[in-house]
Design a protein around this nucleic acid. Structure first.
Lengths: 338, 338
DNA sequence: TTACACATCTAAAACGATTTTGCAAAATTT
DNA sequence: AAATTTTGCAAAATCGTTTTAGATGTGTAA
């Protein structure tokens, strides 16, 4: 079945295709199309089941009304809810979102940027993987609307919105101290991205503030491309080799989940044998007995702010925008694990 | 910064734009473009940073190389992994996927189909919400490639791939019986979709096979648009009002998770006070002590098969396809909860 | 010398919309 | 009555590609 185009409608209604376009775009008044013609066109379009070809519109107008969202891993609940919230938010502005995952791989990230460029997205929301500086800087230089989320690249002149990672970790550490924990291990990922660094910085700062000597042995950096099993073993090893530990701080939710599995296998109990706190909330943390204390990012606020920033750039492409840096506050959710 | 088009390249290289197109599409040989010209064009395109406008290509060729994927809720891990696997699978064929959620709302589903149609997707993968029969049948009648996943609509002439829901539940029930459980409650959702019905049918058939009288009081249908709290209360109520229950069968993973919370609040322990089994696996089920027995769908196989069916239709639009019905086997994962 | 094949490209139409410009007829002003 | 403006629509250009159908020149055979 052939699709019906604006030309077909024009022919059926006995008018020019431009007339159909005016009517269908509500410009009948402005273009002084008579009511008779307007009604006829509307009627014909309706009965013929006409719907416009978005590709053609985009090509002609130069606006695709689409945003590209590049996250680390859409399978992770943090990014999934972020994506969903961003989508809902963008819809308010009449924009669609297409999203994709880098898996923290720069070359995949480069490909994704290319793919999105080819599809003429109007703007980019990116959680940059390491070594994507150049590709993103290029977008900025081409004056493409770009907003970075969750982390940023110091070398790149792009606006960004993220949480106060260091302070949030500090808050979590203060909570641990107040509960009497002193020997606190830190499990993070061996990944060269700023928010992970900030979280470690927060840990170190908190220790020094409390006057505790930094012990590098109880900081575990797990390779990003770990296999499940290996990571679980590494964390278990940390616990076995450092029996003095009374608490573990996990830098992300997937690390926390792996940690639960390690603790489980060692038949240690939370919080009696070891207290647990993790960055990023997760269903499991709410449910897993006795409840895992975590640091919850304000996903909705992040999404709203990022989309707002991006929309601002999209709708005013003529203006040159300054780099805007937004830092939102994460929230400590205290549960039974501490 | 103005984007550079094929015309610009043509001008810079001193040739016609058709020549550029031939070269860039590797048709230089076929169109007998001289090597001199070919090299020059390639060089100019490279240094000018040319990349094609996918919109224009799609418009001209009539193929967008994009598939539309409509799921129930991209936030649910089952659909999220399904989506991701489908995306990876489609990539093998050189297709992109755009996905969106119905929230089981037919009117939202209708809108999504419209949106995807406007964007000229080449094919549709749909987990249909109730009452979407008409809209989907229309796609089929327009000869658009369509494959239904996870469930199907008896009234619609579209291919589909799903799991053997009834048998899988039967298998789970048989396992429960073999462990000595007799009083098995069934928690499902009040939703008029076929796979949910099949799961209930499987439960009823298993009971009758075992010679146990059906007790409607221990079948709980939770309204789909429940609030978390209400659902948890409903399940807790089921347990309180039926102290004879020794096991609960949950029809989906989100129901299972809600159930865990209910059981938690009643301070009942698994599996001593109540055994638990759920359809659809989830991270939580693997981790939550003592491990929740579940029925795992072969997500990867579903994705592969669905994409293969759809690709077949997309690449051979001339042929009229018969309705293909694929049923895959789900797998029982026994854990500590039973 | 003419015709014909071949090599090497170019011109132009098309995809489906939007938007600027053009133009005849009717209405209004001078 | 002539000049001007307004009305109501049509024509054509345009977006960036692909693709079909020539155009042009050169070497070869008749």
């Amino acid at each position: 079945m052939k699709k019906v185009s604006i030309k077909d409608i024009a022919q059926m209604a006995g008018v020019a295709s431009s007339t159909v376009s005016f009517v269908l775009n509500g410009k009948a008044r402005k273009m002084r199309i008579s009511e008779t013609v307007e009604k006829r066109v509307l009627e014909v379009a309706r009965t013929a089941g006409y719907y416009p070809n978005q590709l053609a519109i985009s090509l002609r107008t130069g606006k695709s009304k689409t945003l590209g969202l590049i996250v680390e891993n859409i399978g992770n609940i943090f990014f999934a809810t972020l994506a969903k919230t961003i989508e809902e938010e963008a819809e308010q502005y009449g924009y669609r979102v297409v999203y994709c995952s880098t898996e923290n791989n720069a070359s995949k990230g480069k490909e994704l940027i290319n793919m999105l460029s080819q599809r003429q997205v109007d703007g980019y929301l990116i959680t940059p993987a390491p070594h994507m500086e150049e590709d993103i800087q290029q977008l900025v230089q081409l004056q493409r609307p770009v907003v970075l989320i969750d982390r940023y690249l110091p070398a790149v002149e792009a606006s960004h919105v993220l949480v106060n990672n260091a302070e949030a970790v500090g808050q979590g550490m203060a909570h641990l101290f107040s509960q009497g924990y002193r020997e606190i291990g830190f499990v993070t990922v061996d990944l060269d991205v700023i928010q992970i660094e900030q979280r470690l910085d927060g840990y170190i700062a908190a220790l020094s503030k409390e006057g505790i000597r930094l012990n590098k042995d109880i900081i575990l950096k797990i390779p990003y491309t770990h296999h499940r099993e290996d990571a679980i073993e590494l964390i278990a090893g940390l616990l076995k080799n450092n029996p003095q530990l009374d608490a573990l701080f996990f830098a992300t939710n997937y690390l926390g989940i792996l940690g639960l599995e390690s603790i489980n296998r060692l038949k240690m109990s939370i919080p009696e044998d070891i207290a647990v706190i993790s960055f990023d909330d997760h269903d499991i943390f709410r449910l897993y007995p006795p409840g895992i204390t975590s640091i919850q990012q304000p996903v909705e606020a992040i999404a709203k702010k990022a989309v707002a920033l991006l929309m601002d750039q999209c709708e005013n492409t003529d203006i040159r925008f300054d780099k805007t840096e937004v830092e939102l506050t994460a929230k400590l959710i205290v549960r039974g694990s501490t």
